[in-house]
Nucleic acid binder design. Structure first.
Lengths: 163, 163
DNA sequence: CTTCATGCAAAAGATTTGCAAGTTC
DNA sequence: GAACTTGCAAATCTTTTGCATGAAG
C-alpha cells in the first residue's frame, strides 16, 4: 500500500496523457512527484518554486501546462478561496478532505465525511459520468467571527435561509 | 414569496455591508438586482456588460469590489471550470443546483440533491460555522467523451479509485 | 524521423489600486 | 462634516502563447 500508491498515481496520470496523445516526460514526472509530496495547499507559483528548489528543470510554463492534466487525472484539486481559485491541493498526499472557509477572516477548517463521497459517486453514475475529482467548499462565518461581530438585529430571519 | 424574496436578498446583502461598516449605495443595489435577474452563469465581465446595457452607472471596479461581498452574503456562488474560477452563478435567481463538469469537453450538467444540502448544514453546525454558501463541483468524464476515447487497457484498476 | 514538449520572453487577460470628486450617514 | 464610494487609468499579477531547440515514441 506504500509503493503501489505511487504507481497508481503515475498510472492515472499516464492514462490521461495517453488519452490526449501526450507524452510521459521527465518534467511531468517531477511535477507529479512534487505534488505527491506536497503536504498542504499550494499555488501554481508555490509549485514552481518547490520544483526549483528541488532542482527540477520544469519551468513555470510547464507547470501551468501540467496542472489541468493533474486535475483531470484527479490527482490535484482546485480550491476556492474568497471566490477565487488560486490554490490547489494534492489529492494524493495524505488523506482526503474538503474545506470550510470563513469568508470573514479566511480561516480554513477541514472536514471529512464519507457520506458525501458516496453520494457524489451516485450522482456521477446517474449522469453517466466517470468521476475524477471534485471541489467541495463550504463558505460561512466561523465561530470566532460570529462572536466578534454579532449579527445585526434583523439578521436571524435571513441567516436561516438556504445555504 | 415573490417580493419577500427580493427583500430577503437585499437584507442579506445589507447585513454583510453593515457588518463591515460599508454603505448601501445605488451602485451596489443595481449590482444586486442585476445578479438576481441573471439566469445562468456569468463572468465578472459579463456582469459589467449587463449593467452597462441596463443603464447602470456601476463601473468595472465597483463590480469587482462588490463580488466578494455578494459571495460572502451567499447571494452569488463561485464556479470552478477547468480548475479556475472565472465564473459565478446567482444563488438567488432560479433554483439551486450544483455542477458536473466534463474535464474533457467542458460540458456542464446540473444536479440537485437535497441530501447534500442537509449534510452540509450538519457539517457546518459541527464546526460552529454559520453557513453562507458553498461550491460543489464534480469533475469527471461525461458519457460522450467516454465513448469517444475509450479508456486504455490498464485503466480500469485506476479508475475505480477514490474520486 | 515525426510529433510533441520545453524554456524563454513577450503577450494577453484579469483583478487591484491610487486618487480626486461625489455620496451616505 | 467625517468616512466611505466611485470611476478612471495605471499598475499588478497570473496565466497563456509563439517559436526555436531538444526529447519521446
Amino acid at each position: 500500500m506504500r509503493l503501489s500508491r505511487n504507481k497508481m498515481n503515475e498510472a492515472r496520470f499516464r492514462d490521461v496523457l495517453r488519452q490526449h496523445g501526450l507524452r510521459w516526460t521527465q518534467e511531468r514526472q517531477e511535477i507529479l512527484q512534487s505534488v505527491a509530496r506536497c503536504p498542504g495547499h499550494f499555488t501554481a507559483d508555490d509549485l514552481v518554486q518547490r520544483l526549483q528548489s528541488e532542482g527540477s528543470a520544469a519551468s513555470r510554463a510547464t507547470v501551468y501546462r501540467a496542472l489541468p492534466l493533474l486535475v483531470e487525472a484527479g490527482l490535484v484539486q482546485p480550491m476556492v478561496l474568497n471566490g477565487e481559485v488560486r490554490r490547489y491541493e494534492s489529492a494524493v498526499s495524505g488523506t482526503h478532505h474538503d474545506h470550510l472557509v470563513c469568508t470573514r477572516c479566511g480561516a480554513i477548517e477541514e472536514f471529512q465525511f464519507e457520506a458525501f463521497e458516496i453520494l457524489q459517486r451516485e450522482v456521477a453514475a446517474q449522469h453517466g459520468f466517470r468521476l475524477q475529482g471534485h471541489v467541495h467548499e463550504l463558505m460561512g462565518t466561523c465561530a470566532k467571527c460570529q462572536k466578534r461581530e454579532p449579527a445585526a438585529p434583523d439578521s436571524d430571519e435571513v441567516n436561516n435561509a438556504r445555504a
